[in-house]
Amino acid sequence: MKKAFLTLFFLLIPLQLVFAVEDEYHFNTEAARQQFEGLTTELRCLVCQNQNLAESNAALAVDLRTQIYQKVLSGQSSPEIVDYLVKRYGDFILYRPPFKLQTLGLWLGPFVCLIFGLFYLIFYIKNQRRR
């Protein structure tokens, strides 16, 4: 997969040269681009709180995007970058809350509800019919 990807990438290089339009955030590798995209879409803008960092035009969002961009370029991993932001802004900045004691209900509640519901249903029909 990775190999095919690299070949594709090198095949596309001439094309990229022809249309040398500058990407707003330019990356040398596709992996870095995806890392940046993944990070900015999963982080919440703290100013306009209904947008992620990728979408927001608020000044702080632009600053944070630039920070993330530079960190991605310098080769930091996503958990490192997320940790950097959480230390400053708290878990509020994460659109995907971390899995820990306080969020146990959030992550497991739905599945517990579904599984319990299905088991209860089957149990109920079997039991009641036997009578």
């Binding site: 992620n52 809350p97 209900g105 959030l106």
Partner: peptide
């Protein structure tokens, strides 16, 4: 699921635990 996702930040906040965001990835 949607109720939990929508109301969980209020639950944590009202217990004075912390503020979290639940969004698209969740």
């Amino acid at each position: 699921t949607i109720l939990i996702g929508t109301l969980y930040p209020i639950i944590l906040d009202s217990l004075n635990l912390e503020k979290i965001s639940v969004g698209e990835p969740y």
